[in-house]
Write a protein that binds this DNA or RNA. Sequence first.
RNA 1: GCCCCCGUAGCUCAGCUGGAUAGAGCAGCGGACUUCUAAUCCGCAGGUCGCAGGUUCGAAUCCUGCCGGGGGCGCCA
Length: 541
Amino acid sequence: MADPVKELGEAVLAAAAELGATPKKRPTLERPPQADLGDYSSNAAMLLAGALKSPPREVAERLGEKLAGALGDAVERVEVAGPGFLNLHLSDRWLKAAAAAALADGDRFGRTAYEVSERVLVEFVSANPTGPITVAAARHAAYGDSLCRILEAAGDEVEREYYVNDYGGQVQRFAASLRARALGQEPPEDGYRGDYVAEVAARIDGAAELDDDELAKRGVALMVDAVRATLERFGVEMDRFSSERALQEGGAVDEAIERLAERGHVYEQDGATWLRTTDYGDDKDRVLRRSNGEKTYFAADIAYHEDKRERAYDHAIDILGADHHGYVGRMKAAWEALGGNPERLEYVIMQLVNLVEGGERAQMSKREGQFVTLDALVDDIGVDATRWFLVQRSPDTALDLDLDLARSHSQDNPVYYVQYAHARIASILRRVDAERVAAAVAGDLAASPEALHPSARDLIKKLLELPEEIRVAAERRAPHRIAADATEVAQAFTAFYRDCKVIGAAEEGGDEDLRLALCELARRTLASSLDLLGVSAPDRM
RNA sequence: GCCCCCGUAGCUCAGCUGGAUAGAGCAGCGGACUUCUAAUCCGCAGGUCGCAGGUUCGAAUCCUGCCGGGGGCGCCA
């Protein structure tokens, strides 16, 4: 896979090695803050200064000479600046060749650039099957699915999983509410009051006569179907729905408790069975089996994670809401108590989503039936805007989703800016024959006589960042970086579009083939980034 | 009281595993439509990076303390 920037970075490392020192950490190779400082800059000399016992600027001078010699005509000149930065001014030829290399990767440019492949399980959403998917869970869906797409792009083998809490108290209350609706009554005080309850009840034949367990199973099955449909409409396809009930009734939970007991982490107190999670850093011990004999949700989740562990993933990532963050300590403790490697179980804690309407926060309660569903939100502003909006911010940041704004100013959403850039490129490319574009893309770009306009140089450099952006987004579990990067790509293309005529480039001394090829590379990059976010890349708007 | 997240432009937020003069979108002001798509572009204005110390060649970024906001601390899930 092409990654010209990475190759350049390796050239810097090689030059450093020639000076007889290896930097303590990998030197940076990044775009300097100002264009006139060069195309790329590296802090390598500053990292080497200590080992070489020379001033950073002096090291930079020597490093620059080595590098210039190694890169030949790829480099125009090398300069030392500031505290010891090495600034590279590259030739047009290098940039054109780099673009050609990226184009040779087809639609896969930027993907699997770093071939460390791991098997990763991502568990997300996992909302209780007692009601529709709400906006809070929608953020999990948008984030989790984008993360999976990005991990896949970075070379990992990913499975998406939804844990269904189809057992226990809230499911019994759900069944009781279904029965009440089936009988034309109001749900019990502690039941579920949303309108959907009556609709679900109406779809279960003889609901009023079924026993509690059967009614719960049927109701949950219908809710899971609804959840699946909502997620699919949202572009999220789970590989597996895991059932808590199956674990409870299949004996897996008892087995897990037994295994913990064998390892000596369990004790009885006050009639309940406890796990000594404090041995693994939790702040208090936790109950596995209540004094009434019922096993806790925690006990079931231990069995579920034991199942995950046996499936031998390199990483199991759980995405939880901030309101569950207190759960992390005990789960990690249980994982370790059963011999799990703590580095393989990873938690992402998503901060909450607040809906704002009429300038006020809308309170959400599934129990009371007061909530905005994901379906309703998608009806309002569409899948693309919804996904973009929910994923464009760091999971660490609480999100205020202003419904009035989302409705009335949906045109201001940056997703349209990025999509528009894609549509605009598609429009340009439509004006010439497909064969012509294909030939331009496959052509020898490095041989193009065109002197690159600064906007074209900037565009190429921005496009070449994609492999690194994907790698970092994957590594830091940060899909929002892809959204930010896509916006920057769209901006870079728009500047190029403004300054460089593509069709009829010859009129201003340009090379139409080269510019068509750059358009295609920009289009692929935008389409790729949008795909990583689950957002469509339209050809027309 | 303890734990987690946040505090950066008027607003919403990037940047946070240390690098050069801290960025984007929106809002505001002033311009550009005989267009390869104006869902766009150009310019202007806008900052004690919550506060105070510390670490070092260098701190928005790392450490400590404090202040403010959100979330959590159950034999609920």
